[in-house]
């Protein structure tokens, strides 16, 4: 189950049937940015820019370390960013420059 062959057979998100800890029965109200992120991905799917399968693959491709560390919508927004770059919709420069511009606008140190 944890051997190297299993790492090849399973994608990082392919969890079904693996042993895991007890379930923590938790929930939270979405933060405003999480809800905006969800809506953004929904509209991208509706407009045929990024579909559900591409989004899921983008999350898979983050790799097990990030998958284990990031929260649900942190994974979504990072995966969306990567998929949009891979599909040539946005460039990495565009995204980096806009991130800096937003940080400047909000008076954040970078």
């Amino acid at each position: 189950m944890t051997g190297a062959d299993d790492l090849i057979r399973r994608g990082a998100n392919d969890l079904g049937g693996l042993p895991a800890e007890p379930i923590v029965i938790s929930d939270h109200e979405l933060l405003p940015w999480e809800k905006r992120c969800h809506a953004l991905l929904d509209v991208l799917a509706e407009n045929r820019v990024v579909n559900t399968e591409e989004k899921r693959r983008g999350i898979d491709d983050l790799g097990s370390e990030l998958l284990g560390k990031l929260t649900y919508y942190e994974k979504w927004v990072l995966a969306a960013s990567n998929v949009l770059m891979q599909k040539g919709v946005l460039t990495s420069d565009e995204i980096a420059q806009r991130v800096e511009a937003v940080q400047d606008r909000l008076g954040m140190a970078r």
């Binding site: 940015w33 905006r36 992120c37 809506a39 953004l40 509209v43 991208l44 509706e46 407009n47 820019v49 990031l70 919508y73 942190e74 927004v77 990072l78 969306a80 960013s81 949009l84 919709v89 946005l90 565009e94 995204i95 806009r98 991130v99 511009a101 937003v102 940080q103 909000l106 954040m108």
Partner: peptide, 23 residues
């Protein structure tokens, strides 16, 4: 990540790929 959401949304709106109204 919140900044990244804002950045992606603004770029996608500017390119006409999503509309602020649809969001």
């Amino acid at each position: 990540f919140e900044i990244l959401e804002i950045a992606l949304r603004e770029l996608l709106i500017e390119k006409g790929l999503v509309s602020a109204d649809a969001l």
